[in-house]
Nucleic acid binder design. Structure first.
Lengths: 216, 216
DNA sequence: CAGGTAAGTTACCTGCCGTTTAGTAACGAA
DNA sequence: TTCGTTACTAAACGGCAGGTAACTTACCTG
């Protein structure tokens, strides 16, 4: 309460700094956290601003709406991961099954076990209520991801490693357990102690899946 | 437009009826639709009321809150499905793999391909923001479902049909593709024409999975 | 050390929706 | 037909959060 008596001498240390260059990245980082924790609709820009060390007004200085902010988050977090996967696939030589394993493990390392896993979860959760965002995400991420995985399977089929399975369908079967594990982490994992040994779960899945699509 | 000129003679036909007995079920049915279409948070009680042919106030006459309404929906829709599955398992004699196939197909018929699939999707989506509801759903549905499927696997292991796999982990692997398909229907399916042959997807999954946990 | 500009803050507006409350009308009983 | 009960309606309350606009202040430039 003696708080207001603080010395007011000379340059009383600026209450805030101008940091035009650093703000956007900081706001995006804060937004990622909040979106992941709350989902899109329930995320409060006030909260994003607080965590970024600014006020709501500043957020609107750099992003014209909540939508735009979310798109920025996706573009600067998930999209680069996809790109990295594509690069990995392009650079890969050798059996398709090895590439498959690399990609699946990479997905878990970069997305599944980080907070990024909240983004696909959020997107599936709120696609209905925000069709424009869903479309955006679908075009920028889902399609590219499917193409990536489809390429791997086709490569394996061409090389004779895999049977001539239905590719789009198999892509979904390959991804489903990963996405489910990610969603679990952001939902029921929070209300149970039931252990979930994800690395083993993933390896088991890889095993079953590769075994299933390989020639007998 | 000559509508307002309607004869006002005698008992001008009541503007609404008292139907204490029928209301709750009608409100629950309407609520199921709206919750599935919008999710929990975004579902408007106004909308529920409208579809049930009453006003918002009436909803509160029968359910003390949005939470309570949602719980009623779960109890009267998903929970009976679980119970039916349990009955099926109890009555089943014969190979565990047959029971597995029956349960998976049954799940898709009763939940996956109906609007009920929106409930698990919704619940995973909003568990973080509504921990009390998540807990409720987890206890009443998830645990029972896991127990049910775990029982099937254990039966198969005991009979020598299946290998001695990690049961909880395998339960998740068995369910993940189903849940994912359900979520897909309520998310990206709405923003693409990309076909998704779910019956084939499910049969392929059953194939891979049973093949994987059976003895070589 | 001015003074201008733009980064940042503050306060407000607006619409929305869960919940409540006061009133209204259906309908069974006397 | 009247009257009382109560199912149902209607209207308002309250808080919240996205978005905006007006003001402040950091900091660069001459």
């Amino acid at each position: 309460m003696t708080h207001a008596v603080a010395v007011k001498r000379h340059p009383p240390r600026p209450r805030w700094k101008r940091r035009k260059g650093a703000r956007p990245a900081e706001i995006v980082a804060a937004a990622l956290q909040v979106f992941v924790e709350r989902g899109f609709a329930a995320a409060k820009l006030e909260e994003v601003a607080r965590r970024a060390g600014v006020t709501k007004g500043t957020v609107y200085l750099y992003f014209k709406s909540k939508d735009a902010l979310f798109k920025a988050v996706v573009r600067e977090t998930i999209v680069p991961c996809i790109a990295e996967g594509e690069a990995l696939a392009k650079a890969h030589t050798g059996p398709a099954r090895e590439l498959f394993v690399k990609l699946v493990h990479g997905w878990w390392k970069m997305i599944g076990e980080t907070q990024l896993s909240g983004i696909p979860k959020l997107m599936m959760a709120e696609a209905v209520n925000f069709p424009a965002l869903a479309r955006f995400y679908y075009d920028e991420v889902v399609i590219r991801g499917h193409k990536l995985m489809a390429g791997v399977l086709e490569r394996g089929i061409a090389s004779g490693e895999f049977r001539a399975v239905d590719v789009p369908l198999s892509v979904r079967l390959a991804m489903a357990p990963l996405l489910h594990a990610a969603q679990w982490r952001h939902s029921f994992a929070l209300c149970t102690r039931e252990p979930f040994d994800v690395p083993r779960y993933i390896d088991t899945h890889i095993d079953l899946f590769l075994n299933g699509i390989s020639h007998a």
